[in-house]
Each structure stands twice: as C-alpha cells, then as structure tokens.
C-alpha cells in the first residue's frame, strides 16, 4: 500500500477530504521528526513505539578490499512493535 492509497483509505474512513488527511499526515511526520531528533520516544497504542537509538562507532572489514574501516556513530529511528499487533501478525 503506497502513501496515496493510504491517504485515500483513511480519508474515506474518516469522512474527510484527502487534502485534510494529507495535512494531518504531514503534521504527524513533522512531530515525529522533531521529537525523535530530540531523542524522545513516540508511542502509539496498539501499534508500536518509534524510538531513536544510538549506534556506536565500529570497525568493519570491507568484503571487497579486505581493508578495515571505521564506521562513525549514528542515531537511527527504531520501531518496536506493540504486543497486540505482534500477536495479530503471527
């Protein structure tokens, strides 16, 4: 399901226009972006939790050249599925 279809479906279920839903979706993405950038966790009941996690720097060996490389640390957005959804997916 791509973004367009998702917006359409949600708009139909809510009885609102797709433009409204798109605006709300943009706002949601914006909130997620700013909060996760501040290392806050955003949890959505019965769906899951978006949590930024720090990955430490590490040394890898490039499979092609066989040389060792230092990968810098980074922060990634992780997603932890809620128990409810996990049970349904099984």
């Amino acid at each position: 399901m791509d973004n367009k279809k998702l917006v359409k479906t949600v708009a139909a279920n809510m009885g609102r226009t797709t433009a409204d839903v798109e605006k709300l979706l943009d706002a949601l993405a914006g909130v997620l972006r700013t909060r996760c950038s501040e290392m806050d966790t955003v949890s959505i009941p019965s769906f899951g939790m978006f949590e930024p996690r720090k990955r430490n720097e590490r040394v890898i060996v490039s499979p092609g050249s066989g040389k060792r490389m230092l990968v810098p640390p980074k922060v990634v957005v992780g997603f932890k599925v809620s128990g409810v959804l996990k049970a349904k997916l099984k």
Partner: peptide, 27 residues
C-alpha cells in the same frame, strides 16, 4: 485523535493482510 487512530488501524490491517505500507515522511 481520530486521524491518528484511524491511520494506524489502517496500517495495521494492511500489514495483517501481508501488504507493505509506505507512509510519506515516516517510512
């Protein structure tokens, strides 16, 4: 609130159906 609940309910249902869901700006 209705929007957030509806959105993630839709996503959950699509995932249960085995579909891949792409949300703009989230992932």
């Amino acid at each position: 609130e209705l929007f957030v609940r509806e959105l993630f309910a839709t996503v959950s249902q699509a995932l249960i159906d085995g579909e891949k869901v792409k949300i703009k700006g989230i992932g």
